[in-house]
C-alpha cells in the first residue's frame, strides 16, 4: 500500500489515469453517468421508469441534504417543506398565473432560497435536539399552511399541473423525464463534489468536527451553516418543481413531516458524508417500498425494522460500510 507509485511525489499525485478514475469527482461521476445511461436497458416497463425517476428526484434532494447533514453535521427534519414549496411555486405560478415553467422553477428556487436564508441564522444557532425540533417545527408549519390556504394551494386535494413546456417544447413521457432527471442528478452531484473539495466544503467539514477549532482559523461557522442550509434547500426546491411537473400534481403530504423523515433516513441509510452514499440511500429506500407492496399490511413493519437494523448494525450507512469493507479487503 505505502509503496505505490504515487506514494508521495507531488507530480505523480496530480497525474495518473488510474488515480483520476479512483477520485469521486472523475471516476465516481463517470461511473454514475454510465449507470444512468445504461439503466434504461434494464427497465422493463413504464412502472419501472416511474420508480427510477422518483428515485432520481429523491437522490437529487438527498445529495443536497447530505451537504447539510453529512458534511456540515447539522440536522434538518423539515427539508420536505422546501421540496414542497418548490413544487407548489411551480404549480401555482404556471397554472394560476400562466408563468413559463422555467421561470416558475427559478422563482420557486429563489423564493425558497430567500426563505431558508431568513430563518437559517436563528435556527442554526441551535444544536442537536433543539435544532431537530426547530427544523421539524418549521416544516410542520409550512405543510399546515399548504394544507390550509386552499384558495391558492388547492388544500388537501392538492394542485394539478400541465405538462412541462420549455420554449414551446412539451416535455412528456417516461424517456424524456428519465433524461431530465438523470442530467439534473449528474449536475447536482458534480456541483456537490466540487463544493466538498473546495475551501467552502472544507470549512463545512471542519465545523462539523469542531466549531471552535474552525473559528480560530478564521471560519465564520454561522455563515457556513447558513450557506449549507440555503444550498440544500434550493436543491430540494428545484427537485420539487421537477417532481410537480413530472407527476402532474402536488399534494401537501409531499411537504410534510413524514416526507422530511424519509429524506433524512435516505441520507443516513446510504451513509452520511458520502455523496454517492446519499444516492444509494435514496435509490434503495425509493425502490424498497415498491418491493414491499407485496407485503401490503406489513410494509411499515419492514421499513421500521430496516431503519433500526441499519442504524444498529451499519451505523455509518450501507454504502460507506460496504466501501470500507471493500477497501480493507483490497488491502489484505
Amino acid at each position: 500500500m505505502t509503496s505505490d507509485v504515487h506514494a508521495s511525489a507531488a507530480p505523480a499525485r496530480r497525474g495518473g489515469l488510474a488515480r483520476a478514475l479512483l477520485r469521486p469527482r472523475t471516476g465516481g461521476l463517470g461511473l454514475l453517468a454510465l449507470v444512468i445511461a445504461l439503466l434504461p436497458l434494464a427497465l422493463p416497463n413504464a412502472y419501472a421508469y416511474d420508480v427510477a425517476i422518483n428515485a432520481g428526484l429523491n437522490a437529487i434532494v438527498c445529495v443536497g441534504l447530505n451537504l447539510l447533514i453529512g458534511y456540515a453535521g447539522q440536522i434538518s427534519l423539515g427539508h420536505a417543506a422546501f421540496f414542497g414549496l418548490g413544487a407548489y411555486a411551480s404549480g401555482i405560478l404556471t397554472t394560476r398565473y400562466g408563468w413559463p415553467a422555467p421561470g416558475a422553477l427559478a422563482a420557486g428556487a429563489v423564493l425558497v432560497g430567500v426563505l431558508a436564508f431568513a430563518v437559517a441564522r436563528p435556527v442554526l444557532r441551535l444544536k442537536g435536539h433543539y435544532l431537530a425540533m426547530a427544523t421539524l417545527g418549521l416544516g410542520v408549519i409550512i405543510s399546515i399552511v399548504l394544507n390550509t390556504e386552499s384558495w391558492i394551494t388547492g388544500g388537501p386535494d392538492g394542485l394539478m399541473l400541465d405538462d412541462l413546456t420549455v420554449l414551446g417544447w412539451t416535455l412528456a413521457g417516461d424517456h424524456t423525464w428519465y433524461g431530465i432527471v438523470g442530467v439534473t442528478l449528474l449536475l447536482t452531484v458534480w456541483l456537490a463534489l466540487n463544493l466538498i473539495d473546495s475551501p467552502v466544503g472544507r470549512a463545512l467539514r471542519a465545523l462539523h468536527g469542531t466549531e471552535i477549532g474552525a473559528q480560530v482559523v478564521g471560519v465564520d461557522t454561522a455563515h457556513y451553516k447558513v450557506l449549507a442550509f440555503v444550498v440544500s434547500a434550493v436543491i430540494a426546491a428545484v427537485a420539487g418543481s421537477l417532481f410537480a411537473h413530472y407527476a402532474g400534481m402536488i399534494t401537501p403530504g409531499k411537504a410534510g413531516f413524514m416526507k422530511s423523515v424519509e429524506l433524512v433516513t435516505m441520507v443516513v441509510f446510504g451513509g452520511m458524508a458520502s455523496t454517492f452514499g446519499a444516492i444509494v440511500g435514496a435509490v434503495s429506500l425509493t425502490v424498497l417500498p415498491q418491493l414491499l407492496v407485496a407485503f401490503e399490511d406489513y410494509e411499515s413493519i419492514v421499513l421500521g425494522l430496516i431503519m433500526i437494523g441499519t442504524m444498529v448494525f451499519m451505523r455509518r450507512g450501507l454504502f460507506v460500510t460496504l466501501l470500507d469493507l471493500a477497501k480493507s479487503w483490497r488491502r489484505s
Binding site: 470549512a203 467539514r205 471542519a206 468536527g209 471552535i212 474552525a214 471560519v219
Partner: peptide, 21 residues
C-alpha cells in the same frame, strides 16, 4: 480540536481558509 472526518492535510488546509477564494 481536530477535524476528525478530514485527512491530516485537509486539516491544515482549513488553516488557509482566509487566504483562499
Amino acid at each position: 480540536q481536530i477535524y476528525t472526518s478530514m485527512t491530516a492535510l485537509e486539516n491544515v488546509m482549513v488553516g488557509r481558509h482566509l487566504r483562499l477564494d
